[in-house]
Nucleic acid binder design. Structure first.
Length: 459
RNA sequence: GCGUCGGUGGCAGAGUGGUCAAUUGCAACUGACUGUAAAUCAGUCGCCCCUUGGGCUACGUAGGUUCGAAUCCUACCCGGCGCACCA
């Protein structure tokens, strides 16, 4: 990549899908253009949401672009801060998450990230903020955890972690670790408070979400107010470990928190990070932002058919936006697409199919994307039976409804009766609707349930 | 700690002794129309047996009063608000 090409790539990175870019003196951009391989980028990961969807992918794909330039991407797992509970975007206080859950979630997270990011050590690293925030007195002793110790007679024995002996052993273990790692960086109360000395109340409550709560007379808890400071300290620690923390990226909902990172770094005499915050992607409903809890998301590990179908069910109004945020289509073309939709020059369906194929291709490859498209056309436009469908076996003496409920295709037999009564069940073999709830299958029938559920029956 | 208001189905939010499996809105599901878009119209929306019918389980938790409780009483748990205590 030569210098002009690189400059063009950087321009794209810093503008496409970007809501805010904070780099007041332009020093970050300069460093990125001249020595991209020296740039260290922080990305805070929420360990409570193991499913990565297209909304997260916007940021991840951005990070990939940075990696291609040689910049270093550091995943900062907020395993400590997740337990505190980030108030972002919530009008209520978030439930706390246990350490065990977090550990499990991170494993799934990593598996999915592989689809987008490079994981070679040259450009990628992980770090957990639990390492510097937790101290020995915060230990939780799980009854499920067993610890191996030396018993009275010199034999090795195993005890649960929450017993007296277990606790003592855990503590001992931790102390030994501490002694062996003298160079560990600890955030102590002193660090914390010396930072807080420079953070004012008005600065913290400036956050518009807090303002709203104050106005409506709702509660505002201290841990929520201090959350951004903790996140700022993360940046400070990162810079200490890796020499610098040049940029933090995240959704625009993280903007305030990321700016706090700049403050904390300045307070502690470091060069403040630049901040790059991205647009939030709307979900399948076209209104709310994509999130797991609203169940309006497209997961990057969704199977090709599902992914294709979900994209096809998007409201037309989002086509342009998805092209911009979720594909590699050059921006001038995206602009053209947006205009052709507005002017009615092109059938939105065609554009959406194109969109769906492109996105599926990114996560599943060309071949599967083509197949997904063909399947879609066959099944939903031509009304054919899909090639692969779930097969359920009806046991001896069991009703069809019973089998469907057992295999969790339907929630209850009553639901089956309702569906039959409303004409939602079609026998694809004969093309006829099933109207008798006591329908006895002969075996081999292919049924369509509602719009997009298909089952094959085996006796 | 004291006072006070409240905890109802995925969410919001009615109901305040029988006619309540619980009004309504949102969400969801199904049908028609379509492009698995939007809009619209119609229907469904605890579970089981199913017959117009019957049974079971549910209104924070546990008991109680009553022929009968989401609705009344008692205790407990959780939340909002106010006051006080302690600094």
């Amino acid at each position: 990549m030569d210098k002009t090409e690189r400059k063009k790539a950087i321009e794209d990175i810093l503008t496409r899908g970007v809501r805010d870019f904070v780099d007041p003196d332009g020093s970050f951009r300069k460093k990125l253009e001249e020595h991209p391989e020296k740039v260290v980028i922080k990305f805070g990961v929420d360990p409570t949401r193991p499913d990565i969807h297209l909304g997260h992918a916007i940021v991840l794909r951005k990070l990939r672009q940075f990696q291609e330039l040689g910049s270093k991407v550091i995943f900062l797992v907020g395993d400590f801060t997740a337990q505190i509970g980030d108030p972002t975007g919530k009008s209520k206080i978030r439930p706390e998450v246990t350490y065990e859950e977090i550990k499990k979630n991170m494993k799934t997270y990593l598996e999915q990230v592989k689809l987008i990011l490079r994981e070679d050590k040259e450009v990628f690293a992980w770090i957990n903020n639990l390492d510097w925030f937790i101290s020995i007195t915060d230990l939780v002793f799980s009854p499920d955890r067993k610890i191996n110790i030396e018993g009275a007679d010199g034999q090795r024995i195993t005890v649960p972690s929450n017993t007296f002996v277990g606790k003592a052993a855990e503590y001992d273990l931790l102390q030994r670790q501490k002694i062996y790692s003298r160079n560990i960086l600890n955030i102590t109360m002193r660090t914390f408070f010396s930072t807080l000395r420079h953070v004012t109340h008005s600065r913290l409550i400036a956050r518009d979400m807090f303002q709203k709560r104050i106005d409506s007379g709702e509660e505002l808890y201290m841990h929520e107010m201090l959350y951004p400071v903790l996140q700022g300290i993360d940046s400070y620690v990162l810079a200490n470990i890796f020499g610098s923390c040049d940029l933090e990226v995240g959704g625009t909902d993280q903007h305030f928190n990321m700016l706090m990172g700049r403050e904390v770094m300045k307070i502690n005499g470091l060069v403040p990070q630049a901040v790059l915050s991205f647009e939030l992607l709307e979900g399948l409903d076209g209104k709310e932002k994509m999130s797991k809890s609203l169940d309006n998301y497209i997961g990057i590990t969704d199977d090709p058919g599902d992914m294709y179908g979900k994209i096809m069910s998007l409201p037309d109004t989002l086509i342009g936006r998805y092209f911009e945020l979720c594909t590699f289509t050059p921006m001038d073309e995206v602009q053209g697409i947006k205009e052709s939709i507005k002017g009615g020059a092109k059938n939105p369906k065609e554009l959406k199919m194109d969109l769906a194929r492109q996105i599926v291709e990114i996560y599943h490859g060309k071949e599967k994307a083509g197949k997904a498209e063909k399947n879609f056309v066959d099944i939903f436009q031509k009304g054919k039976a899909p090639e692969e469908m779930e097969e359920i076996s009806v046991k001896n003496g069991e009703s069809l409804a019973g089998a469907l409920v057992r295999s969790r295709i339907l929630p209850s037999k009553t639901e089956w009766r309702r569906l039959v009564a409303s004409g939602a069940i079609t026998n694809l073999g004969t093309g006829e609707k099933i109207t008798d709830p006591e329908f006895k299958p002969k075996g081999g029938e292919k049924l369509k349930i509602g719009k997009h559920r298909f089952v094959k029956i085996k006796l």
